[in-house]
Design a protein around this nucleic acid. Structure first.
Length: 474
RNA sequence: CGGGCCGUGGCGCAGCCUGGCUAGCGCGCUUGCUUGGGGUGCAAGAGGUCCCGGGUUCAAAUCCCGGCGGCCCGACCA
């Protein structure tokens, strides 16, 4: 028996994560470009499914895709004071092009609020032009000091939605609508439970009025910000002079939003469901949902088995692994570490009895199914597995969420383990700062309070209306 | 960007301290036979700028200096 190429989670979670990414053939460090990664076909296929799920929902809510330049005039970033302050440390800047020093450097987009603001100002004149609902699928670059595959890389893929509205009320509706879509994709498609909430003022997007996020819990108890949706107010409208004439004939600035999710979701996916044997993909996200491994000895068995195997695989839309020169055992391990939800085994015994063996990736449970029932059974198993993965993740989130009623309590809990700690805390940067002492942050202030309502802030003693999520995070 | 560990066939490592034969090992890969219900076995092969640059030396994977990159911790982080 060969040794597992995957470090157990218990032993070293970070090493486990690296191993799963590598063994699942998801991505590898680019090495020749600092902090960047190569997303391999297996990983990119997952991204494509995620893109499809998101894009369909964006379109269904009236958004259109568009594309803006990768390079942004440096001066654009400076037009919004908070924005430039927030992003300038992590900008990559192009100063030379065509062999000449540029008069004005270009920054490689870290996000596109500025350049899109510029074009919005040209596109929008009247209340009739609103709302503008745009989404862009793009790559962005942020010179992060510390990178981890999928979770934080120098260059990453994402979508960024940018919308402009006539009223703040409408903009806030949009912000929450998109947050809901993110939560829906996270929970229903990725089987990753999330907490929707508002970011504290200290943690909000540079240039936003308010930021909202969905926060997920990884298997090691760390939080992962899985998606954000920002109420930009009129900040960028004013910075880029995006004005429209209202029905009443008044000139006013638009109210904007922006929202995004990135390839980081794939990191979250991995750390939500995968196990010591490798990647586990929820069925709805798996590019390949089922693989059929034929088993045979002699040539005449081979012919018979392969014939039946091909017929069944075609019927149920499974991939067939008919590679020669690999033993069935080797194939089982191969698909296992690549996270395929269901592996079907078909050997001479099954051909003779008109059965087939079906195995789930998550539980490892095997069952013998009549060939005539396999299509229905596969559908049912995939559905169950999707639900079970979500259920297990939800259970873990619940089990690792605790209440605290004092700063000392919060600190004790977080020093002992990685948990989500629910505590009353005022939305004040000074209060956020107190958590830094033990490397925690407010993840968000939940939109829906599932606990005991109001209480006194554990720092200031002032009344606050609900508990916030405090945790260590990626 | 600070601290630590690391960089040697595709992958994982030994060798380095104490410089010196032809740079080894396991896995993987190729070919043949064998095997096949959870990594089959045997045999024969292929495959290496020892991260890069400079220095010391008769001689550098090994010592010295500089750089690049990876991982972990920290600071930073929409």
């Amino acid at each position: 028996m060969a040794e597992s190429p995957i470090t157990p989670r218990e032993k070293d979670f970070a090493a486990w994560y690296q191993d799963v990414v590598q063994q699942g053939d998801m991505a590898e460090p680019a090495e020749i470009v600092k902090g960047c990664m190569v997303i391999k076909p297996n990983g990119y296929a997952v991204w494509e499914v995620l893109q499809r799920e998101l894009d369909t929902r964006f379109k269904a809510t009236g958004h259109q895709n568009a594309y803006f330049p990768l390079l942004i005039p440096e001066s654009f970033l400076k037009k919004e004071a908070e924005h430039v302050e927030g992003f300038s440390p992590e900008l990559a800047v192009v100063t030379i092009a065509g062999g000449k020093e540029l008069e004005e450097p270009y920054v490689i987009r870290p996000t596109s609020e500025t350049i899109i603001g510029h074009f919005f100002s040209r596109w929008i004149q009247s209340w009739r032009d609103l709302p503008v609902l745009i989404n862009q699928w793009a790559n962005v670059v942020r010179w992060e000091l510390r990178t981890r595959m999928f979770l934080r890389t120098t260059e990453f893929l994402w979508q960024e939605g940018h919308t402009a509205h006539a009223t703040h009320e409408e903009a806030v509706e949009e912000v929450l609508r998109m947050l809901d879509i993110y939560a829906e994709v996270a929970e229903d498609v990725m089987a990753m439970p999330v907490i929707k909430g508002v970011k504290t003022r200290a943690e909000k997007f540079a240039g936003a009025l308010r930021s909202y996020s969905i926060e997920a819990m990884m298997q090691n108890g760390l939080a992962l910000q899985a998606g954000t949706s920002h109420d930009l107010g009129q900040n960028f409208g004013k910075a880029f002079n995006v004005q429209f004439q209202s029905k009443e004939g008044r000139l006013d600035y638009v109210w904007q939003t922006s929202w995004g999710v990135s390839t980081r979701l794939i990191g979250g996916l991995i750390m939500s469901h995968s196990d010591d044997k490798g990647l586990v993909l929820p069925p709805k996200l798996a590019p390949v949902k089922a693989v059929l491994v034929p088993i045979y000895r002699k040539d005449e068995e081979r012919a018979r088995v392969l014939e039946t195997a091909h017929r069944i695989a075609k019927e149920i839309g499974a991939k067939i692994d008919d590679r020669d020169g690999h033993s069935p055992g080797a194939k089982f391990f191969y698909w296992e570490r690549r996270g395929v939800p269901v592996v079907l085994e078909l050997g001479p015994r099954d051909v003779a009895s008109n059965n087939i063996v079906l195995k789930r990736r998550d539980t490892g449970a095997k069952e013998v199914v009549a060939q005539s029932d396999v299509a229905a059974r596969l559908t049912a198993v995939l559905e169950t597995m999707q639900k079970d993965l979500y259920g297990a993740a939800k259970e873990r989130l619940k089990a690792n969420t605790v209440l605290a009623n004092s700063m000392i309590e919060v600190e004790e809990i977080l020093n002992g383990a990685n948990k989500f700690v629910m505590a009353h805390l005022k939305d004040d940067p000074a209060c956020d700062a107190r958590l830094k002492e033990f490397k925690a942050t407010v993840r968000n202030i939940p939109l829906v309070d599932q606990y005991d309502g109001g209480g006194r802030c554990i720092v200031t003693g002032e009344p606050v209306d609900r508990r916030v999520v405090i945790a260590k995070s990626y």
